[in-house]
Design a protein around this nucleic acid. Sequence first.
DNA 1: AGTCTCTGTTACACACCGTCACACGATTTA
DNA 2: TAAATCGTGTGACGGTGTGTAACAGAGACT
Lengths: 250, 250
Amino acid sequence: MLSVAYSAEAKHVTAARLAPQPERLEEVFCAVPRESFEAGEGVFWEGDQADHVFKVSEGVLRVFKIIADGRRVITGFLYAGDLVGLSLKDRYLYSAEAVTPVRLRRLARKPFAEALEKWPDLRPQFFARVCDEMATAQDQMVLLSRKSAEERVATFLMLLARRLHGCHPIGRRIHLPMSRLDMADYLGLTIETVSRTITKLVARGVISPEGRHDFAICKPGKLLALCGDGDSYEDTIDREPKMRQAIWPH
Amino acid sequence: MLSVAYSAEAKHVTAARLAPQPERLEEVFCAVPRESFEAGEGVFWEGDQADHVFKVSEGVLRVFKIIADGRRVITGFLYAGDLVGLSLKDRYLYSAEAVTPVRLRRLARKPFAEALEKWPDLRPQFFARVCDEMATAQDQMVLLSRKSAEERVATFLMLLARRLHGCHPIGRRIHLPMSRLDMADYLGLTIETVSRTITKLVARGVISPEGRHDFAICKPGKLLALCGDGDSYEDTIDREPKMRQAIWPH
DNA sequence: AGTCTCTGTTACACACCGTCACACGATTTA
DNA sequence: TAAATCGTGTGACGGTGTGTAACAGAGACT
């Protein structure tokens, strides 16, 4: 009985040797090889046994739920560095598909949990990730609940502008890897409305198109104001990289 | 240095003595006295230093965010037994107010974290709570993103019916402690729409009013169908793990 | 080239839901 | 008791966003 338990742990012990005491949560994923997915390919499906967690290393993923008559809700887009499948129990709550060609590392749940067990320093990082996920979900609820089409699109563009520029002020260029349908399903709108709204923003000189999937932000202040968050432009450019550190739990 | 660390822990050690090795996460809250709040009173505010976690022991709480021009989004209602303030970092992400008179236990973050540290058996429970919160948030995103007014109201009624009845099939009676405005801000609608929708459900004999804040569910199957989740009545009464296959897209 | 397919844009009628207005009952205040 | 206030219900109306189109542009293929 003991020997069985021991051999079951052997694999992960090996992995641990390769990366002794990782400093950052991502390093736990270094031991496993990367997998590739083509654009449009599914990674896992809502309701599947949630056996793995993932770390995106290249490309963009969409996570979504489907209801009744085929209505789709995209609950998030995941970029390089993001972890997927953390905050769930035995089954995936959503499906995940590649938007662009994607490379990711897949780690079985058990060694992941054991790593958290073995290196307590990783737990605050893990918890911080989950909290960010929660905060993002709440912002999304605000968007879906009370924002107009224009505010939704503006918010989305700002989101991508910030993401592309790391945590820096605001990037001037945005790349939208996903289709208009993806955007629509993320923003709770239709493709037509998304299209129209973008056209309107372009007409007003807030952004300017550089191909279908790229835009330049001409008036960042204006765009920010259109988000309807009550933030002013100054609030965002001075915003020091606010290191919100999880205090909790150790 | 060691002695300092030791004395800092002394208080919590005392608490631990009172309740040695709690089996359930809630028991961690037993050591602190209960506080009372009147209906409408605030418990904490978005942006406050998140120093405490709470356990509701009586009454109903609403948690909400406010944006720009005063628009309010209620992200959830919390009932007896629910924990508040788990999934956040240094500051509260939302405000909390009493809907009804509320009694709750307030526990400082530190002893709570220490309890999790000391009794690892509690950690899965903690994690499960956070996951439930996440799952709820995602269902809410689906509701706000893609459901019609009628589906939203129906979903809300079903939610309360299930909650009141524990996890049992479906309660036949629903009590709505909150105002129509609260419902509207939770469902992403206006009071008028909520009101009209309820009237319509009553007219069709799906539910029947028993005062302003109480309803009887006359046709549970019908109500469930109106939720737009694709579940049938039978699915919910003998809740088997439903295998959902995504058909979509590609 | 030419054709096909896929994605994105634009137009127009319509539906749902929000806005505004007022009525009603219950409770509080004068 | 009357008046005021609050929460709620209901009606008329209009706007935002939707659905169904047709159309345009880009890329893939023969």
